[in-house]
Amino acid sequence: MLLVKDLHSYYGRAHILHGVSLEASGGEVVALLGRNGAGKSTVMKTIMGLVPAAAGEVNFDGRRIERLPPYRIARLGLGYVPEDRRVFTELTVMENLAVGLQPPRKGAPAWTADKLFALFPNLAGMRERPGGRMSGGEQQMLTIARTLMGNPRCVLLDEPSEGLAPIIVEQMAHSILALKGEGLCVLLSEQNLHFSQAVADRAYIIEKGQIRFGGSMAELASDASLREQYLSV
């Protein structure tokens, strides 16, 4: 469903991605692992069109999207959940969801606020609370819910477990598996190997803007030297 080939991108004049290739299919959770600064967020932003792709391709459902503006990409059914959450702090939970609202689309689950409250029960009790007055974990759930309101077929989750308490991380894992169950394609970036092992089917390791490993979670689990080299200190 999502196919990235030899992607390069820059922040200003800093060359961040040096030819990234990866793919992800429907009903699959793929983890993009790497230490901070490795380029994980930039991969997500470049796929989404928020950082211009300097070279390379992004294919979504067989369509080239690397030159499209972000809103067109979102309307094709690719959802993006940023690392820094970017909740609209002045808007209530319901209003945050309203901003994400898009018409239902074929081949994707149609979400409503109520369905999302079933997926993220914490949010159900705070419909009218402004986004700025929520805890980090609640904000994280809200950003995911907000993106799901667009009924995407594929979601990019940038470090969903970062800075969350262990119990919230567990809920997050549960929710991600629920999305997979709905047939969504999920690409998530992570530093947390344990969390990734709990939810992902496959993994890529990125380091210094280049993919160093691609394979199943089991392969990664059995290769201690790989983990040492790219993920540990």
Partner: peptide
């Protein structure tokens, strides 16, 4: 109100 705070994110949500 969302765009006043973060235009880019509003775009990334399909607006």
């Amino acid at each position: 109100r969302a765009a006043t705070q973060d235009r880019e994110m509003v775009g990334a949500l399909g607006v």
